[in-house]
Simulated assay, not measured.
Amino acid sequence: MSAFLVPELTKKREVDNIIRDTLDKVLVLRFGRASERDCILLDEILHKSCRGVSKFASIALVDADAEEIQVYIKYFDVTILPSTVFFFNAHHMKMNSGSADHTKWVGSFYSKQDFIDVVEVIFRGAMKGKPIVSCPLPPERIPKFQLLFKGV
């Protein structure tokens, strides 16, 4: 386990504050449940990566079951857990990973290095003023999922 503390957020106010207060770094918000297998795998990668990304990113875990967090769950259309959302200076960063949804990373990363590569590309793009970046990972290391559209 890393010596770096990864905050666990359960209140809307906590999420609002960390988004607003994280400046000149990528903010990585993992929405999930600490008890699910995929979330445990992703959390392990996030904990191991804390030191490697600490100069250009901050990481927080958001409890998807917390009552106050449901506003974010609906806003980002988090239907599959874990889902990871990225921000830079309070602006939502998007990534084209070949799926129809550019707003979040759905699923876990295959390795610590994959996560670091993604965060680094988001940071570099954000520093250049880009609101969306291209995923640096090869297609075989990008989780596949089926989009579900509600009410269509």
Rank of each mutant, 00 (worst) to 15 (best):
S97T: 09
K55G: 07
F115P: 02
A34T: 14
K48D: 14
V119K: 03
D43C: 12
R124T: 13
G129R: 04
I73G: 06
K12M: 07
L29P: 00
R13Q: 14
R141K: 12
S134D: 15
T103K: 06
N96T: 01
K25P: 05
V78R: 06
E68C: 08
V119H: 02
L41H: 15
V121H: 02
F86G: 03
A57C: 10
W105K: 03
E140W: 04
E44R: 09
Y72F: 15
L148I: 14
L42K: 02
V15P: 00
I122F: 06
L41A: 15
Y72D: 06
P131M: 09
I69L: 03
K150E: 13
I69D: 02
T79L: 12
R13K: 15
S2I: 10
S134F: 13
N89W: 04
K12P: 03
M127N: 13
N89P: 07
A60L: 10
V106D: 01
A126P: 10
K104A: 07
R37Q: 14
V119D: 00
T103V: 07
L9K: 03
S99Y: 01
K11S: 10
G32A: 08
P131L: 11
M127W: 09
L81Q: 10
L9P: 06
D21W: 00
L27I: 11
K104Y: 03
T103W: 04
F88P: 04
I59G: 01
A100M: 09
V78H: 08
P131V: 13
C39H: 06
T10Y: 02
A34C: 10
C50G: 14
L27C: 09
N17L: 03
E140V: 06
E68M: 08
G107M: 01
I18A: 00
I73T: 12
A3Q: 12
P136K: 05
F149R: 13
G98V: 00
G52C: 09
I132V: 15
A90G: 05
L41V: 14
T103F: 08
K130Q: 12
G32L: 09
K128D: 14
D24C: 04
E14V: 01
I45R: 03
K12R: 15
A57Q: 03
S58K: 14
R30K: 15
A34Q: 13
K128T: 10
I142C: 00
V71R: 11
A66F: 00
G151V: 12
V106F: 02
F115G: 05
D16S: 05
S54V: 05
I80A: 02
F123A: 08
T84N: 06
V28E: 01
P131E: 05
R124Y: 04
E36R: 11
P138A: 11
N96H: 08
H47P: 04
G98T: 01
P136D: 10
M95S: 05
F115K: 01
K128W: 09
C39T: 12
I116A: 06
R13W: 03
L137A: 10
I132F: 09
L61F: 04
L23K: 15
I73E: 03
E8T: 14
T84S: 09
T22H: 02
F115V: 11
R20H: 13
V62K: 05
